[in-house]
Design a protein around this nucleic acid. Structure first.
Lengths: 146, 146
DNA sequence: CGACCTGTGTCAGCATGTTGTCATTTGACA
DNA sequence: TGTCAAATGACAACATGCTGACACAGGTCG
């Protein structure tokens, strides 16, 4: 069967694997000076956007990852003083994760490198293409995230 | 600074992380019955497209991965009888990787599940969007792949 | 020929993700 | 109230990727 869509899609999938690896490397480079990594970049962003704190499984649900993977990251970040655990009035065992002052500073510093990085890398890309791309990615996420 | 492109791009990057995880899960599910995984799916595809065999570092260059990561995959696949190593006339130590008959069968079976999967998942997506998406991804790959 | 740089195989350590299992806590419901 | 399914924490095993380090192979150039 001669299906250009099929070939386009398979090409897209393999290219996405490649791009994912490159983005992780970019994130690691970008956050290295801040004592962060790509994995912590994702986690700290989710926590920073929450006002009253999130539980570890809550962060995992936002990121679409397993709670065990997130737990490992938060444990190390807590040891490093970026996060703190606070008792959760709604659950005896499941504590809330909050940014420490050091964590808030790290997040601000993160923004200071992340935003110029984003602007630089979209300089020559029309906003319409970014929009179509994002909508496509979201559509695929919805399709596969059952 | 009010930059919609910046926010679009950062949103896109985080969504790509999410989609990557989902695609790996999809690939694992899809190839499970064939004794493959997502990682082997990528490798077997590259080898199948080559006529005279590729070296391990050659596969790694095509995939944009480290030769060590590919070596580990090919070693397991060779143990499983999907691949065989053949002496390379051009290099005493760096052998060529070829598909065995079992490997060719696995690749054919892979195509039999991969192609319908691709067609199903692009049914409701206009080809223009796939095209814009693929070009965007490739542009980003080129940007980050120095 | 010999020096040197690059490519390759190999082993090790580490980061990040997955799944599975089991005990405990929560919350809903008969 | 008692029971039970779902959510959570904790630990383990494993897959997949990375980098570093070291020895050997190949090719270039003095």
């Amino acid at each position: 069967m001669h299906s250009p869509k099929r070939m386009l899609f398979l090409d897209l999938v393999l290219s996405l694997f490649r791009l994912n690896g490159l983005l992780i490397a970019e994130g690691d480079d970008m956050t290295e000076a801040l004592g962060l990594t790509s994995a912590r970049w994702k986690v700290i962003g989710v926590i920073a956007l929450s006002n009253s704190g999130l539980t570890v499984p809550g962060i995992a649900r936002v990121l679409g990852q397993s709670r065990q993977a997130v737990q490992r990251i938060t444990d190390v970040m807590a040891t490093d003083g970026l996060l703190s655990y606070q008792s959760n009035p709604k659950h005896k065992r499941s504590v809330l994760v909050l940014l420490t002052e050091e964590g808030k500073t790290a997040y601000k510093d993160l923004r200071d490198v992340q935003d110029p990085w984003a602007i630089d890398n979209t300089e020559d890309i029309p906003i319409e293409e970014l929009d179509v791309g994002l909508r496509l990615v979201r559509r695929l996420i919805q399709k596969f995230d059952k």
